Computed example of a mutant assay.
Amino acid sequence: MRLTTLFILLLPLFAGASNHTDSPLALMTDSQAMPDDFKNYFYHSEIPVLVYLNDKLLFEGDITMTEQGQVTLMRATNFDSTHYQKEEIRRWEKQLTQGIVLGKKQNNHPLGLMAAEYSLDTSALKLYSNNYDKEKIKSRYFDVPTDRAKNI
Rank of each mutant, 00 (worst) to 15 (best):
N151C: 13
S23A: 14
L102C: 04
T122P: 06
I152F: 04
G61Q: 01
Q98W: 10
K105I: 09
S18D: 11
G61V: 05
M34I: 03
Q70V: 15
A17H: 04
V101W: 10
L57V: 06
K104S: 13
F38N: 02
K126N: 09
T5Q: 11
M28K: 06
L73E: 00
P48N: 09
D62N: 10
T5S: 13
N151W: 08
P110G: 03
K150Q: 08
L58P: 08
D37H: 04
G69I: 11
F142P: 05
K126H: 10
D37A: 09
S123G: 07
D30N: 12
K105V: 11
Q32M: 14
L6H: 01
G112M: 01
T66M: 07
D36G: 07
L127N: 02
N131V: 01
L120N: 14
R75M: 04
G112A: 03
T146A: 10
N107G: 13
I152T: 10
A15I: 05
Y43T: 03
K134G: 06
L25F: 09
T82G: 03
E88M: 14
R75A: 08
S45P: 08
E93H: 04
A15N: 01
P48A: 07
E46W: 02
R90K: 15
I47T: 03
K134M: 11
M65P: 05
G99D: 06
N130M: 09
G112H: 02
V71Y: 03
S119V: 02
Y43D: 07
D80C: 09
L50M: 12
P48I: 03
N78C: 05
R75N: 04
S129V: 08
T97V: 01
A15D: 04
G61C: 00
Q68S: 13
E117Y: 15
A116G: 05
T82V: 04
K39R: 12
D30I: 14
V144E: 12
D36T: 11
T97A: 13
K86Q: 12
Y118F: 14
E67A: 11
T64H: 03
T64Y: 07
N131M: 12
Y52G: 00
L53P: 05
S23R: 04
P35Y: 00
D80V: 11
M28A: 11
L102F: 04
N130D: 13
N78F: 01
S81G: 14
L13R: 07
P35D: 15
T122R: 12
L27P: 05
M65K: 01
L120K: 05
N130R: 08
M34K: 05
I8W: 03
S31Q: 12
Y43L: 02
H44Q: 14
N130E: 11
I137T: 10
Q32C: 15
S18Q: 15
L113A: 11
Y52Q: 00
P145L: 02
F142E: 11
T72F: 02
V51I: 14
L6F: 09
A26I: 02
Q85S: 09
S81C: 09
Y84M: 08
T97Q: 13
F142Q: 15
